[in-house]
Design a protein around this nucleic acid. Structure first.
Lengths: 197, 197
DNA sequence: GCCGAAATACTAACCGATTGGTATGTGATG
DNA sequence: CATCACATACCAATCGGTTAGTATTTCGGC
């Protein structure tokens, strides 16, 4: 890896860690450079603005999570139920391995939804995600696996909602929650519901 | 209503609307005073700091939502299932009537979880909420209404997660989503799950 | 009912600190 | 010697917060 690439990565990692802890506006460029051990001028040689640094992180999330998830699940042989399981497995695993990235991106919208520069890229992320899950659920309904009363788009939103919410709750309780047990509960409730059968 | 009380309310409303759109750190005192049509000095006569203004909003959420919900549901006669329905009804209704307050409070943690002044008050909110839901689910399990394999604390987290996630998704799609249909989907999935029975 | 003073609610100007961002210079590397 | 990767020093603008002073209300004594 070239030296500049390495520095770029270090900047992104530091920025991400600060952003996820203190928010985008709550984190200053000075804090980031301090964390990396770099001068301000050096950072601006790699990223033309604070916003550009953020857009880098957004793009990274799209290519490494959304795109990869869609590809992985599409390659999975099996019915809609198996594919939905595969989706949950993929996103749980990814979220566990890229905690900061996932948590930050999931809740970035709540801070920046009114921002001219970031509103559209963020909404696009969610649109792609929803479309994918919705199609999966449509398949499941056609195959007689899922409750046919469900509106696929709504159910997809509920899926993402649960996913976002799990992340949120997990952030709040990182220290005293067993991640795997939590994901298992999540999966059970989404698939089977709360009631006894 | 006294003039000062009216002004205080106007400040809080304006602050809330800006906070929910642009985040806490993304909103400046100047923006707030401009929106209210007040000078900076006047605002600081009502609230001693930006943080104090935020704490006011947090306290308002606790007394008007968490406390009210617990009281309302406790007064509700019926089994655990009916009480859980009542909880969902209460929070849906409250969220619909106090959109900015709910959305903001739900996601404030993601921006301020590392902040010395706000971390604890925010965590306390969620602790109270979770404890309440968890006890409800325990009742349901004892009454044979809910799946006895579920860990009540985990299921409570999943409930809150779904609740948070619904709000989040709803923020992202305010214009083109039917709120009631969405809540219905949420309720169905949480109670019955996705699969056909 | 009217007056004047105290209390209240506010404005305008200002503070030091910090913000995102830039211009210029320098030492190492190939 | 040219390019790269950085540091230093600086900028105007804005930040949260304060100050001194000014309208506006309120209310008891007459």
């Amino acid at each position: 890896m070239k030296r500049s690439e390495d520095t770029e990565k270090r900047i992104i990692d530091a920025a991400l860690e600060l952003f996820v802890r203190k928010g985008y506006h709550g984190t200053s460029i000075s804090e980031i450079t301090q964390k990396v051990g770099l001068s301000k001028g050096a950072l601006y040689a790699h990223f033309s603005s604070k916003g550009e640094l953020l857009l880098h992180i957004i793009r990274k999330f799209k290519t490494s999570f959304i795109d990869q998830m869609i590809q992985t699940v599409n390659e999975h042989k099996g019915d809609a139920l198996a594919k939905l399981h595969s989706t949950i497995t993929f996103s749980s695993k990814f979220a566990l391995e890229n905690q900061d990235l996932c948590v930050f991106l999931t809740f970035l919208t709540t801070e920046l939804k009114a921002d001219v520069d970031f509103e559209q890229p963020l909404k696009n992320l969610y649109r792609d995600y929803q479309k994918f899950i919705s199609q999966l659920i449509q398949h499941g309904i056609r195959q007689g696996l899922f409750n046919r009363d469900l509106d696929p788009d709504m159910a997809a939103l509920a899926f993402m909602a649960l996913h976002d919410g799990v992340l949120h709750q997990w952030v709040l309780n990182r220290n005293h929650i067993d991640g795997e047990r939590y994901v298992k509960t999540f999966r059970t409730i989404f698939m089977e519901g709360l009631k006894v059968r």
